[in-house]
Design a protein around this nucleic acid. Structure first.
Lengths: 156, 156
DNA sequence: CTTGAAATACGTTGACC
DNA sequence: GGTCAACGTATTTCAAG
């Protein structure tokens, strides 16, 4: 990726607003920032081209969709060969229950967040998805009570 | 929240598309799902009113912003009184470094994801933010190598 | 960077099936 | 619940200061 041009205060203010209101019309945006619409449009385009803004998304309420319970799962693989990692990651990306997945430092651990309709759905996920992967060695689950802060990215 | 009306296949397809392309014009959207723009607009409005779509956001690349390193932090509080929880959560919500925070079951643990510019920024966060909160009893950090899957919500 | 105007594209509304 | 057509608005692209 091209080294992004310097981000100035105007850009930061644009990002702060667009982070919470991704569909705000250019006209409203320009009023809030104190520039006319044309330069604001240019800045947004530049931020997109530089890869700072990678896209736009509708925020969807998982509970309203029928998945009110998240579970964090720590997974350890039994072999560190690259093939096991790639195989595992391909499967994870295809599982719709897995919202988020990180490869952690240490002992080939993965941390997943899984969204389910409750413990029944989570059991389904464990028995029909995770434990059927040959490379999985151990699994540890933690259940959150409540989400305190839900960010998509760090506040700019 | 009002019980959301039944979500049919068209709604699901709208959600699947809007989850990845939050700004897609109604016309393109309607072509992809095979309906005319008007009913699609109605459905989107209904999904918003029902709280299924809670908003729209620009997706911002944390690395491009200067925060390439995330750290997961487990925090344990020393007192379980509600006031300590509320105090901690208010502080967490105000810290720009904290992207995400969950209250976990068990021993009044919190799980945070913190986005920093590297270990220096993380040390700053620990010493100037977290450890200055009176209610914090213990802290444990885990550093991810790589993000395998980055979702905002479960795939509808 | 700003302004202003013209061309295009988009979203909403209403009548209608 | 769906379609079609028309209207008002937003966005983009120019020009020029």
């Amino acid at each position: 990726m091209v080294e992004s041009a310097k981000i100035d205060d105007f850009d930061l203010r644009i990002l702060r607003i667009l982070r919470g209101h991704g569909r705000m019309p250019l006209q409203d945006l320009s009023e809030r920032i104190g520039l006319s619409p044309t330069p604001v449009a240019r800045r947004v385009r530049n931020l997109e081209a530089a890869g700072v803004i990678t896209g736009y998304a509708a925020l969807i309420d998982e509970a309203a969709l029928g998945y009110p319970v998240s579970v964090f799962v720590s997974v350890k693989l039994d072999r560190q060969v690259d093939r096991a990692l790639a195989q595992f990651e391909t499967a994870i990306r295809a599982f719709p229950e897995v919202v988020d997945c990180w490869l952690m430092t240490g002992n080939r651990d993965y941390l997943l967040r899984v969204a389910t309709d409750g413990l029944a759905g989570f059991e389904d996920f464990l028995t029909r998805r995770l434990t059927r992967l040959a490379c999985v060695s151990s699994i540890e689950s933690s259940i959150p009570i409540r989400r305190v802060k839900s960010g998509i990215c760090r506040q700019p």
